[in-house]
């Protein structure tokens, strides 16, 4: 007898999704199959006991603390608290403004204090960056930004965007490093003719020359 098929029906019946026609078919089978009756009984016990696992919760007083922690993390993640959100939506004539203003009054002191700290920290950081920029000293990036090459490049590109003189210095410095690295690695065995492949570029010509000198040092003297 194909009990597997009927045991699958038992499972569907327990989940309340067996059609009336199949219900009848299953009942007829169960009447004549002690194995499946036993299976049904076992599954009913599992089902009943499983419901007892169902409900678990922390006491009600635990949840406000959970929410407070989550909220602080969300603000640290860059979310806007009520005040900023109200400001942001003011110009749009948002009808929820008054609701948000009310929430402001109810907001815990800790969150307001945290917001204040964040605002002060942002102002200090901006001031710090401006001072550094004025002095022309090397900028330090936050760790997360340094981890991403593209974010780092974006930042760099923005700094170079408006100043051709600095960009030119920067490119020269890069080219010097590339030449230095090439010579150090010793590529004299296979000279790459940059002129054949690339648009006219002083750096490429210089690199080509350097490679040749490096290939036959005595000729260069």
């Amino acid at each position: 007898m194909n009990c597997e098929k009927y045991q699958k029906m038992i499972s569907d019946r327990l989940d309340g999704r067996l059609s009336r026609r199949k219900e009848k078919k299953l009942d007829r089978h169960l009447a004549g199959c002690p194995l499946c009756r036993d299976y049904l009984e076992a599954q009913e016990i599992i089902q009943r006991e499983a419901f007892k696992i169902g409900e678990i919760d922390y006491p009600p007083e635990w949840w406000p603390q959970f929410e407070q922690n989550l909220k602080e993390k969300l603000i640290l993640e860059g979310g806007l608290d009520g005040l900023q959100a109200v400001e942001g939506n003011k110009n749009k004539g948002n009808k929820n403004d008054s609701k948000k203003a009310n929430r402001l009054v109810l907001r815990p002191v800790a969150v307001r204090a945290l917001s204040l700290v964040l605002v002060v920290a942002t102002v200090v950081t901006i001031a710090f960056l401006i001072i550094y920029k004025e002095k022309g000293r090397p900028e330090e990036l936050p760790l997360a930004m340094m981890l991403s090459y593209e974010e780092s490049y974006l930042n760099l590109n923005q700094m170079l965007a408006d100043d051709e003189a600095i960009a030119s210095e920067f490119v020269n410095s890069l080219e010097e490093s590339i030449i230095g690295d090439t010579i150090q690695s010793g590529s004299e065995n296979a000279i790459i003719d940059f002129d054949n492949n690339l648009p006219a570029n002083d750096f490429k010509i210089e690199l080509n020359k350097l490679q040749k000198e490096n290939h036959n040092p005595e000729e260069g003297v």
Binding site: K71, L74, G78, G79, L80, G82, A85, K100, R103
Partner: peptide, 12 residues
Amino acid sequence: ELARLGDVEVFM
């Protein structure tokens, strides 16, 4: 819609 703008209170 409001939470998408980053409003923490609404998201809470």
